[in-house]
Every structure is written in structure tokens, then in C-alpha cells.
């Protein structure tokens, strides 16, 4: 469902060119749970951002469901991001001024759907995340794991084609991390395509496939046994 062909990304740092990504080609199938690993600065986030349409490649092509993500206008890209992609970040990136349920509703609020119409769905999602009691809390009143679960609910509310997570547990302890991974693994089992950047091979072990980046290039591509039985 996602196809990357010879994608490259250059940044200009002053006069110096930084190749964050070089010539990466990759195909992600629907239902896959792909982990991206690699040392710091190897271009993992850059790749994820390209997949999610947060950024555009400086060379090469990216397609989602056959439609190009490269060379399209910012607005078109934004709409794809809004409707087809769910993001989960390391630092949760919830809006501190909004309550949990409002944060979850945000992507649909951007669509212009009235809050009252979205709220039941958001509450349901939060309940599924085990946060039924916490819907009206603001992020500062939540623990890290809870915040991340709110973020997952937010990513899921649009029923995205692909869920992207950038070190989703980088800020959480092992136990809390495990709960998050179990959630993701459950979602994947139900058919959700997931792409996750991680430094943690325990996390990668939940997935179906692991790729490793080195210096912006694809170094390894390991297919793991398969979904849990």
C-alpha cells in the first residue's frame, strides 16, 4: 500500500548539505507491522515523515495506495495526512490546553465535524484504551503512558490507512511501554498497518518486519515469523 522508490532527502545546514536519506526503496504491504531501526541520525524519523506526508522527498517517489505523495501541493499533502495517516510521537504532542477527549477529536474537528458528533466515538476509543475515567482530564493530569494512549486514540479516530509511530515509548518505562506495544500489536492483528521507528528490539519483536537504516540508506530488511497466533 506504500511504495517508496529511490527516495532521498537532503537538508541544507548552512552551506553544508546533509543527506538524511539516500536512495531508499521500500514497499510496505497492507497489514504489515514494520519497525524501522538504526542508529541515531540514520534517517529513521526522516523516512517516517516522508511516509506520513509530513515532509516531501528531495528526490525519488512515494506512493500511498498508488497515489503520489511527492510533488503535490502542501494542501493536498495535508489532507492525505489528515485523512489517511495517524501519527504517534515520542513526546505525545498532545495540546496541553485541550482535554483528553478534545485532543482525540482534533483531527475530525479539523475536518469541520461538530464536536458533539465526534465525542461519542472519541470516548469509545478512550475506553478501549482503558482511559474511560480520564476523558475530561488535561494532559498535565495524565501519566506518560496515559498520554500516549490518548495520542493513539487520536491517531485512530480518523480510521487511518496507516499508523505511524516515532519512538512511541522513548519516554516511557518498560512496563508501560509493553502495554503500548500490546495495544499496537492488537491493532495490527485486526489489520491495522503500522510503521514504527524504535531503538528497542523488544518493540521491534512485536512487528512482522524490521528494517535497519544506516547513514540514510536501507541496510537490513528482516521479515519476522508472522503475526502472533
Amino acid at each position: 500500500m506504500i511504495e517508496i522508490r529511490n527516495a532521498g532527502k537532503k537538508y541544507l545546514q548552512g552551506a553544508r548539505e546533509v543527506h538524511a536519506l539516500r536512495n531508499v526503496s521500500l514497499r510496505i504491504k497492507s497489514g504489515e507491522f514494520l519497525s524501522i531501526m538504526g542508529p541515531s541520525g540514520s534517517g529513521k524519523s526522516t523516512l517516517l515523515n516522508l511516509i506520513g506526508g509530513l515532509d516531501q522527498p528531495t528526490s525519488g517517489e512515494i506512493f500511498m495506495d498508488g497515489r503520489p505523495l511527492h510533488g503535490i501541493s502542501d494542501d493536498e499533502l495535508t489532507l492525505i495526512r489528515r485523512r489517511r495517516v495517524g501519527f504517534i510521537f515520542q513526546f505525545f504532542n498532545l495540546l496541553p490546553i485541550l482535554t483528553a477527549v478534545e485532543n482525540v477529536c482534533l483531527p475530525l474537528l479539523l475536518e469541520g465535524i461538530p464536536f458533539t458528533r465526534i465525542k461519542p466515538k472519541a470516548v469509545l476509543l478512550l475506553e478501549q484504551m482503558g482511559l474511560g475515567e480520564r476523558t475530561e482530564h488535561r494532559p498535565e493530569q495524565l501519566s506518560g503512558g496515559e498520554m500516549q494512549r490518548v495520542a493513539i486514540a487520536r491517531a485512530l479516530i480518523t480510521e487511518p490507512a496507516v499508523l505511524l509511530a516515532d519512538e512511541p515509548t522513548g519516554n516511557l518505562d518498560s512496563h508501560t511501554s509493553e502495554e503500548i506495544f500490546l495495544l499496537l500489536s492488537n491493532l495490527n492483528e485486526k489489520g491495522q498497518t503500522i510503521v514504527m521507528v524504535t531503538h528497542d528490539s523488544k518493540a521491534a519483536a512485536y512487528g512482522t518486519r524490521v528494517i535497519t537504516l544506516k547513514d540514510g540508506a536501507l541496510a537490513e530488511d528482516v521479515s519476522l515469523g508472522g503475526a502472533p497466533s
Binding site: D74, D75, L79, N93, L95, L106, P107, L110, R154
Partner: peptide
């Protein structure tokens, strides 16, 4: 940061 988040979640520049 809020703007960044909104943009990531699909808020257009407009």
C-alpha cells in the same frame, strides 16, 4: 509546537 501538531494532524496552512 501547537501549530506543528495541528499541521501534523492535517491542518492546512490556510
Amino acid at each position: 509546537k501547537e501549530i506543528g501538531i495541528l499541521r501534523a494532524l492535517g491542518a492546512t496552512r490556510g
